[in-house]
């Protein structure tokens, strides 16, 4: 009983340790968040030029713009954080720790989730100002969190594979985008329906699908991460 309890606490401690390591490095350097945010800002500006949005078009497309921007800038962050990890080899010390490997994975995913959420919230403020549409509905925030969980969990796994490839910058989007399309589609549909003020039956199924995909990703990655970081 006691052993078991110690294992549990150390598991979560490793998760928090890994996440805190990333956050501390980020607070010191601030290069990840700032580059992700600049990219997101540029993307929003480009979207509004390219689509030549009037009031009505903005209302229809704001959910799509929001999610596509989150995912592209999130991908930028994922690639960066994993490349740093691999080049510095800072996870190697933790790999020999007597704890399930998935703890490292969830720690890494937690840090990535926090970064993506910060970007997503900043982006919502930005879109609220630039598009003049209030995005701050509490259900949209729920969708935002669910979508970011699905994206970062699968993204952390895929990017920890793609860093080993010859062309890692191109491989990550090619591998990750088809995997997260279910997340993207259901998040866009759910938040689009919410912002248009539709009834619950229009957005609730999408939100349920999103939660289901999240759970599936969390379970699959728990079993698969061991094989990715074997050596």
């Amino acid at each position: 009983m006691k052993d078991n309890q110690r294992f549990v606490t150390s598991y979560w401690r490793v998760v928090l340790l890994v996440a805190r390591k990333d956050l501390r490095a980020e607070i010191r350097g601030r290069e990840l968040i700032s580059s992700m945010f600049l990219f997101a800002f540029l993307a929003v500006v480009i979207f509004s030029f390219a689509l030549e949005l009037d009031r009505e078009a903005r209302e229809n497309s704001v959910a799509g713009v929001l999610w596509v921007t989150i995912i592209f800038s999130g991908m930028l962050g994922l690639a960066r954080s994993m490349a740093v990890e691999k080049d510095k080899g800072s996870l190697d010390a933790l790999l020999i720790a007597p704890v399930h490997r998935s703890a490292l994975f969830y720690g890494k995913a937690l840090a990535n989730l926090l970064f993506t959420l910060v970007i997503a919230l900043l982006l919502m403020v930005l879109l609220t100002v630039l598009f003049n549409i209030s995005l701050f509905v509490w259900q949209v925030l729920v969708v935002l969190v669910l979508g970011c969980i699905g994206f970062t969990v699968s993204g952390t796994l895929v990017s920890s594979m793609s860093v080993y490839a010859r062309a890692r910058e191109t491989l990550l989007p090619i591998m990750l985008l088809p995997v997260i399309l279910p997340v993207l589609i259901s998040a866009v549909r759910a938040s689009g329906a919410l912002l248009a003020g539709l009834k619950a039956e229009d957005w609730l199924p999408w939100m349920q699908l999103l939660a289901l995909v999240d759970v599936v990703f969390l379970i699959i990655t728990y079993f698969l991460f061991d094989y990715v970081v074997e050596e």
Partner: peptide
């Protein structure tokens, strides 16, 4: 993307391992 992954990773053992992982994820689609 699975086939692309196979062609992009040089170390053969790692390629096989990653490909197997990705094949399992891909089945969700």
């Amino acid at each position: 993307a699975y086939l692309f992954l196979r062609s992009a990773i040089e170390d053969p053992e790692r390629k096989r391992r990653f490909a197997a992982v990705y094949a399992i994820i891909a089945f969700s689609s």
